[in-house]
C-alpha cells in the first residue's frame, strides 16, 4: 500500500516537472527563438528545417540596426524611463505619505481619482486620443519632456498604490519618537521613512520602468521627430522597413528585451511581493 502511494507521488512529481518545462517553453519560446534568429545569417534563417544549434553565429543584424540609429532610440528610452521613474517616485512618495499619514480636505475624492486611474491608465489607449488632442492644442507634444511626464502620470496611480501600502506599514510610533527627539518633519519625510520602505520604492520604480520602456502606442502619436524616437517606435518602424527580413527585426526585439529581463531578474522578487502585498484588498 505504502509502496503504491510513493510510486504515485513520484509519478505526480515527474508530471509536475514536465508541466513546469512545458510552461517554461510556452512562455519563453518566442524570446528564445527570437534570440536564435537574430544570430543567424539570412541563409540560415531561411533554411528548412531550421537549426536550433550548430549554426555559425553572426552579429551582422545587430551591426545593421545599430548603424541605422538604433542606439539613439535606446538612449532616448533610457532617458524617458529614468526621468519618469524620478518624477513618479518623488511625486508618488510625497503623495503616498500624505494619503497614509494625514487627513485633509477632499482626501476621499482625490483618492478616488487614484483608484479610478489604476484601470484607466492600464489601458492607456483609452486616453490616447483625448491626450493627443489636448496636448497638441497646448503644443506640448513632440518635446523631450512629453513622454517622461506622460509615463510618470500613467504609472502614478499604481506606484502610489504600492507606496501607500509601504508607508502605512511603517509604525506610527517611530515617527512620534523621532519628533520627540527633535527631528523636523522634513527629516522624517526625506530621511527617516524612505530607507524603511525600500522594497515598495523598488516595486514602484520597476513598475514605472516597465510601463515606460515598453510603451509603444503613446509614443507613436506624441512624437514625430526622429531624434526623439523611443525604442518600441523604432522596432515598430523596422517592421515596415525590413518587412520579411527577420534577422534585424529579431535583433532589435532582443535588444529591447535584455534590459527588461536584467532589471526583472534583480528586482523581480520586489515586484512580485509588491504586487501581491500592495495588490488591492478584496
Amino acid at each position: 500500500m505504502k509502496k503504491k502511494s510513493t510510486a504515485l507521488s513520484a509519478a505526480f512529481k515527474t508530471a509536475e516537472w514536465l508541466f513546469v518545462i512545458l510552461f517554461g517553453i510556452l512562455n519563453l519560446i518566442p524570446i528564445f527563438w527570437g534570440l536564435v534568429t537574430s544570430l543567424k545569417v539570412p541563409r540560415e534563417i531561411n533554411a528548412f528545417p531550421p537549426k536550433i544549434f550548430g549554426f555559425m553565429p553572426t552579429l551582422q543584424h545587430y551591426a545593421r540596426i545599430f548603424s541605422s540609429g538604433f542606439l539613439r532610440c535606446i538612449m532616448n528610452s533610457v532617458f524617458y524611463a529614468l526621468l519618469a521613474i524620478l518624477l513618479g517616485l518623488v511625486f508618488g512618495y510625497l503623495a503616498a505619505y500624505g494619503f497614509a499619514r494625514r487627513d485633509f480636505p477632499l482626501k476621499k475624492l482625490l483618492f478616488f481619482i487614484v483608484v479610478v486611474g489604476i484601470p484607466l491608465s492600464s489601458g492607456s489607449s483609452v486616453l490616447l486620443i483625448p491626450n493627443y488632442m489636448y496636448l497638441t492644442n497646448l503644443h506640448l507634444t513632440n518635446h523631450w519632456y512629453t513622454l517622461p511626464v506622460i509615463y510618470a502620470v500613467y504609472n502614478l496611480p499604481m506606484a502610489l498604490w504600492l507606496l501607500i501600502a509601504g508607508v502605512k506599514a511603517v509604525p506610527h510610533e517611530l515617527e512620534e519618537a523621532a519628533l520627540i527627539d527633535g527631528a523636523s518633519q522634513r527629516f522624517i519625510v526625506t530621511r527617516l521613512i524612505p530607507p524603511l520602505i525600500k522594497p515598495s520604492i523598488a516595486a514602484a520604480a520597476l513598475f514605472i520602468f516597465i510601463g515606460s520602456w515598453n510603451d509603444y502606442i503613446t509614443s507613436s502619436v506624441m512624437i514625430n521627430s526622429v531624434s526623439l524616437k523611443s525604442i518600441q517606435m523604432a522596432i515598430y518602424d523596422y517592421m515596415g522597413f525590413f518587412g520579411q527580413e527577420w534577422g534585424p527585426l529579431t535583433a532589435s526585439a532582443t535588444c529591447a528585451i535584455v534590459p527588461i529581463l536584467l532589471v526583472f531578474t534583480f528586482l523581480g522578487r520586489q515586484l512580485v511581493s509588491g504586487l501581491t502585498a500592495g495588490a488591492v484588498k478584496g
Binding site: V90, F91, G92, L94, A95, Y97, G98, F99, R101, R102, D103, F104, P105, L106, K107, L110, I113, V114, G117, L120, S121, L127, P130, N131, M133, Y134, L135, V149, I150, A152, V153, L156, P157, L160, Q185, V189
Partner: peptide, 22 residues
Amino acid sequence: RIGGLFYTLPAMSLLILLLIVP
C-alpha cells in the same frame, strides 16, 4: 490638514491635468 494637501498636490495636479481634463 493643509500639510496633507500639500504633500499630495504635485501628484494629484498632474493626474487631474493628464487624466481628467483631457
